[in-house]
Write a protein that binds this DNA or RNA. Structure first.
Length: 212
DNA sequence: TGCCAGGCCGGGT
DNA sequence: ACCCGGCATGGC
């Protein structure tokens, strides 16, 4: 049985703090979480910068902005029609349930919030958990494509296991540590981008390799 | 130039 | 319960 805490410590020792999420406010983090679905972060940055330039990175502004105008601003992030709809859905939820305030949202229980987020059209488990962990500072582990790729290539879980299977592995074997969950997911992204490319069968250059 | 990027949904089996 | 196509831009 691989000790996930040892893997974490090894990665942290090698790569250090990742300073995530790369966004300044809880709302910006939530918006970024939606925009980065299956999309390179550098493209998301362009979209977010467009919103900032138009002073549109607020619940009110996003709520009132016409669909086509918003779609045009986030165009660099790709899938802009779908993502405009998803942003609008999230913001409508935020307005209706929390008066447009991420701070109010943060007060509530994380499992209640997770259910609510998953009921929003266009928000699935990874996006919900990213918002919970990074915007609302709830101790929930975020599983993504890199997490699955790295763990499966190292024989820890099969790649066709579900999101919940991967998440349960972390939740069952690690302490619920907000700071650690934050760093751990960010480290997986760092390692995944750098060493664990899609076409390579094994991460032979990866810092995890010695745990095989 | 084709492949890839910090998913998710809807329709078909 | 799975499987697959669609969604779209920008960087290498």
């Amino acid at each position: 049985m691989v000790k996930l805490i040892e893997i974490y410590q090894k990665l942290f020792n090698v790569f250090g703090h990742q300073n995530w999420w790369p966004g300044e406010t809880p709302l910006e983090i939530a918006v970024g979480a939606i925009l980065t679905q299956n999309t390179n972060w550098s493209n998301v940055e362009k979209a977010i910068q467009n919103l900032k330039n138009k002073k549109a990175l607020s619940a009110k502004a996003l709520h009132e902005m016409p669909f086509k105008k918003l779609a045009n601003l986030i165009k660099p992030a790709g899938y802009f029609n779908i993502k405009t709809k998803r942003l609008k859905s999230f913001i409508a939820f935020l307005m209706n349930d929390f008066h447009g305030s991420m701070k109010k949202m943060k007060i509530y229980d994380m499992y209640l919030l997770r259910e609510k987020l998953l009921n929003i059209h266009g928000i699935g488990p990874e996006t919900a958990d990213s918002i919970l962990l990074y915007a609302l500072e709830k101790p929930i582990f975020v599983v993504d494509a890199y997490t699955k790729r790295i763990l499966s290539r190292h024989g820890i879980l099969r790649h066709d296991n579900s999101y919940d299977d991967f998440q349960k592995l972390f939740h069952s074997s690690l302490k619920r540590d907000l700071k650690m969950f934050n760093e751990y997911h960010a480290l997986f992204v760092k390692v995944g981008k750098t060493y664990c490319k899609p076409k390579e069968p094994l991460c032979s250059q990866c810092a995890l390799y010695e745990y095989l």
